[in-house]
Amino acid sequence: MAAIHLPRAMRIGGGVLAELPDVLAQFGLSRPLILTDAWLAQSGVLERVEHLLAQAGIAARSFTGVVPDPTVASVEAALAFLREGNHDCVIGLGGGSPIDTAKIVAVKALRDAPVSAFKAPHQEDAPALPIVAVPTTAGTGSEATRFTVITDEATDEKMLCAGLAYLPTIAVIDYELTLTKPARLTADTGIDSLVHAIEAYVSKRANPFADQAALTAMRLIWPNLAVACADPGNRAAREALMLGALHGGIAFSNSSVALVHGMSRPIGAHFHVSHGLSNAMLMPVVTAWSARAALPRYAACARTMGVAGDAESDQSAVGRLVEALHQINADLSVPSPKAYGIDKARWDDLLPLMAEQALASGSPGNNPRVPEAKEIVGLYRAAWG
């Protein structure tokens, strides 16, 4: 049995940003609040979206104070801005941070409760303001998921919030918006979407629908990630990564992520490492540790990605997968926590808390091999460098 949830409308392809006014009109929406960050405000992308909407007679207001790894304070500031206007929907324009901010703001617009009241295992399913996702990175898949992650800056906890309330009504997926992404962001977001696909496929909550999305994501991402990093203007590689990110998002939203994500969030919260980068730091070590509990599944990932042949044994295929994950980290200059510059004493001191926070998120419970806290501490030590 599987319960499948998707955005009501998706517009996909090069240049579809131009269709944003049409798809808003299709849903009877005319008073959007755009949530984005300072970089997109300065880059001309926000101005382009505002101009598109103005030409169609849609009066939008824009909030440009979204921060990376959105905090409770940044969410409250965006919510206060929303309440100054008369808005009928929220547009998240940008990477995972603006889209995640749009999701929680859309929910809190109709609920009077602190963000902490929404964190997992709580499920928020009743409708929020309509959410419109316009991704400008190929990574988080947030345009197709029923999750958002908000940092409680008081406790350094990344709070996972889940439920149908966070699923965008509309997603406008235009790979041309990613053509100017720098190599580091391309690498980090691309590995993030690869992790989504692999974890969704090996998850205890995997199902045949999500499996197909996950396998498609792997086929699209693996051969194109290094190409897009080396040749940012390569349109075919950019389109493949954008579609791969979407399929990865669909996959994990309809099965789940697992141990890598559970362990990744505390690294991001305590040490301000970007989400895709902290996933990449952990992926080879966690895969090697988890594989024996789902050998055929991990082997299928290796074959789908083309790093192992069909005739190879599962054991051999998984060995090649772990090797390939180490190699892509090396090729894309993914640092270990040590090489990133994290203080060793602080890292060691925080390991018990990080393990506890990882388990509390629920994601490790979906892993094929479910760890105890002391095993998570051991994995953090192994990933250190």
Rank of each mutant, 00 (worst) to 15 (best):
N224D: 07
P130C: 08
A330N: 01
A345Q: 14
L246C: 06
D349T: 15
C301L: 07
D310G: 02
I12G: 03
L194V: 10
A38W: 08
L353D: 09
D188R: 13
E50Y: 09
W222S: 06
T151D: 06
V115C: 04
A206L: 03
L179Y: 11
S255T: 12
A73L: 13
D211M: 06
S116H: 06
A3W: 14
E47N: 07
P135D: 05
L241E: 10
P335E: 00
G378N: 07
V67M: 14
D211K: 13
T140G: 01
T137W: 07
L241K: 15
P284M: 02
T304W: 04
N254D: 07
V307T: 14
Q123A: 05
D152S: 03
A144R: 10
G233W: 11
A128Q: 14
M218G: 00
R381N: 03
I221W: 11
V260G: 00
V202E: 06
V227W: 05
I376P: 01
V115G: 01
G85K: 13
S253L: 03
A120P: 00
I376D: 02
A187G: 01
A226T: 15
L351G: 02
A144Q: 05
K108Q: 14
R31W: 02
A294V: 13
R111W: 11
E356K: 15
D348K: 15
W289H: 12
V286P: 01
K374D: 12
F27D: 06
G365P: 03
G341F: 01
D188S: 12
D152G: 01
L40Y: 13
V202H: 09
D69T: 15
A113G: 00
L325N: 05
P32Q: 04
F271V: 12
T101A: 01
